[in-house]
Amino acid sequence: MSVLVVLEQRGGKWNRTSFEALAAGQKIGQALATPVTAAVLGSNIDSLATEAAAFDIQKVFAIDDAALEQYTPDGYAAALEQLIQASTPKVVVFPHTYQVRDYAPKLATRFRKSLVSDVVDLKTVSGGLSYVRQLFQGKLNADIPAEGDLQFVSIQAGAFRAAEPASATNPIEQFRVKLDPSAIRSKPEAPYREAQRSVDLGAAPVIVSVGRGIKEKENLPVVEALANALGAELAASRPICDNGWLPMERQVGSSGQTVSPKVYFAVGISGAIQHLVGMKGSKTVVAINKDENAPIFETADYGIVGDLFEVVPALVEEIQKTKA
């Protein structure tokens, strides 16, 4: 029995959320009094496996195969299926990345299990372990008891402090898999970035970001006035850019830019996790939202619960007074 943490790399570089998943895996291991192992998949991954072996774990499984050079759901699911069958872990832990969302449900289905996706916390209630995950874009939480002989869990970015290497040299087991390249159905092309961004929100000291609460494109001048008064860059949550009200390059969140300004104003943004991961690094967060239960208030330092169409103009006036 063990906890198996699947670490993620692309092109020889770690996805850093892997180490947050590892930290969660270590906590699960403590709760279940069971050792923690880690797996790394790819082609020519010796140095990654060595790095992983420095963490506080029992051992690393290195699955090194030419068929895993590029990520495919068929390849990854087949490789990990074989590792799980051979090493019989009780809990398999992943970082909740886009890649994991693509293959982990498929892998879990092979064992007729459901992945407990997007876990934000662990709870130990009367000796039993529960996974805490979010519902309704973070507005509610649910406790899901850790039941069954084999569990699959993915850990949300930012929910656990990343594990630090313990400068150990734990054993590395080269785990050989049998992969039939002709059974890999998807043919991936090289990943790419779209044309160079002309707006670098990452460098902006002040950002005013707008969400669904703005209701219509015609209302954008309300927040533009705030951005102007503050000398701030204007940004947005995904739905605003999806609607074409602001260009995609102004989107903050998991699929857009990651920002860490001195002040971040979230105006009419409820605070779905996809948005929060993009702005969590902000020094000070100000939220303006009509719903007092909006998850954005969990991240905010200062908040005004109210109608943005009343609050924002009042704020602009106050700022202008201060600056006058």
Partner: peptide
């Protein structure tokens, strides 16, 4: 097993009242 409103772990200073005053 249970669903619930998340408890706030962070102390957010909320300004209520009239928009002008809150601003």
């Amino acid at each position: 097993e249970r669903i619930y409103l998340p408890t706030r772990s962070k102390k957010t200073q909320i300004f209520s009242g009239e928009p002008k005053q809150a601003a």
